[in-house]
Design a binder for these strands. Structure first.
Lengths: 117, 117
DNA sequence: TTCAATAGGGATAAATTTATCCCTATCTGA
DNA sequence: TCAGATAGGGATAAATTTATCCCTATTGAA
């Protein structure tokens, strides 16, 4: 586990939400869990760009921040299902708004990003 | 300048918006510029947690992504003013929604974050 | 009986982001 | 005359995040 060496700023809402949502895959994880992809292996398949490892790590953080919960079925082979807590649910409209802006400006963004790569 | 070694994923709206908004201070910069803090020095005072340098760098990226523009006044000492482009403006409601969620859950987030620090 | 699927964590390397420090220039005020 | 404000960039170090690789365990299928 990595231990942070500096304290986070917690001045405004943006700082606060940043602490729980700032992670490359966190919004996607929440989004896909909300869409019904609950098992780690399903999420890994939905997000092929991320390594298995990071997804585990970020899921764990989401869990520690009470945005998701998990159910471990005592079966073999192992079966785990994540779900959104009410707290996590409340974030879905926000993530929706973010993703929607990206979708709406898809073409322009794509062009800009590639031009500045 | 840092040159990236891997290509970005550009699959969905979240990837796209991430490319222009993923940077510790970018949302705050847009927000404060929108509130009327236009000069670099004003922005630096509004965001004391960030080094002068990063703010410059991130402003430059926002500019290259056409979210902000800048006016350089040919005076001495130098005077520069940033402004939101229409494109940048269109992001303000999204940032508002994000910050609002953070504000609404201020107490809970603060507790969670500190507990997991 | 060997391989894939299942879940997840440790150790370490690589990539990326952010911070620090220093340098350029000019004007105003103490 | 020296400090401070103004804007901004280079070089480098530190912090942080993400990727890679490897290991544990069990069951069912080829």
């Amino acid at each position: 586990m990595y231990e942070r060496k500096t304290l986070p700023d917690l001045n405004c809402g943006l700082d606060l939400i940043g602490e729980v949502l700032y992670g490359k895959w966190k919004m996607r994880l929440l989004w896909f869990i909300n869409e019904g992809f609950k098992r780690p292996s399903e999420l890994q398949r939905k997000i092929p760009g991320a390594s298995r490892r990071v997804l585990n790590v970020q899921l764990k953080e989401l869990e520690s921040h009470e945005l998701v919960g998990k159910v471990i079925y005592p079966v073999v082979p192992p079966k785990v299902e994540y779900y959104l807590t009410d707290f996590g649910q409340s974030l879905i409209p926000v993530i929706g708004a973010i993703g929607q802006w990206g979708d709406e400006h898809d073409q322009r963004l794509r062009t800009l990003i590639l031009k500045n790569a």
